Simulated assay, not measured.
Amino acid sequence: MTALQGFVQRSGRGFARLRGVAASVAVSLALGGCGVVNNMIYKTTGDVMQGFAKSHTVPYLLESQDLAMGCAMSQATAPLLMSFGRVTSEPDQLAVMLYLTSGACIEEQAREYELQGLAQLRAMSAEGAEDAMIRQKRAYALASERYFKGWQHHNAFYGKPDESECPDFDEDLDEFVYFAGLLTGLQALNAEIQSTSSIGVPKNVGSTVARATSCLENDKWWGAPMALRATVWAMIPGALPQGEDAFHRLEIADRQGEQAGVRISHVFHAMAAMNRGDTERLRGIIRSHAESIKETPSNDQWRMVDAMATQLIVAMSDRMWMENTGHRTPFGQLGTFWDDQPEATEVMDLDDLL
Rank of each mutant, 00 (worst) to 15 (best):
F148P: 10
E171K: 10
T310M: 02
R211A: 14
E163R: 14
C34K: 07
E251S: 07
S164W: 11
M304S: 06
C71P: 00
R255P: 01
N155I: 06
E258V: 12
L282K: 02
A224L: 12
L81W: 01
D306K: 07
E112L: 09
Q259F: 03
T44S: 14
D306H: 13
F268G: 11
M82K: 04
M235E: 13
Y147R: 04
V96R: 09
L81I: 13
M235D: 05
R17K: 14
P342G: 02
P237N: 14
K160G: 09
T208H: 09
C105M: 01
A23L: 11
Q116T: 14
E108V: 06
A191K: 00
G243Y: 04
A26F: 10
E343L: 11
A260E: 01
R86A: 14
D219V: 08
L142D: 02
R328F: 00
A246F: 15
M133E: 13
D349Y: 02
T101H: 01
A227K: 02
Q109E: 09
T336F: 08
S24H: 12
F148N: 12
A104T: 10
S164N: 07
D339L: 01
A123R: 15
Q194A: 13
R249L: 09
L250Q: 04
E145T: 09
E112R: 14
W222L: 05
G181A: 08
E108A: 07
S55M: 04
L282E: 12
N38M: 10
R255C: 06
D170F: 03
A139R: 02
A139C: 03
D47V: 08
G238N: 06
L173I: 12
L18E: 07
L81Y: 14
V36N: 02
A315K: 08
H269F: 02
H248L: 06
G20Y: 03
Q9A: 15
E163Y: 13
A272T: 03
D162F: 05
Q194M: 15
L29D: 02
G35C: 00
G238D: 03
S195N: 03
H327G: 06
S28K: 05
E130M: 15
Q301D: 14
I134E: 04
L115F: 12
D352P: 02
N38P: 05
R111P: 00
K160R: 14
E63A: 15
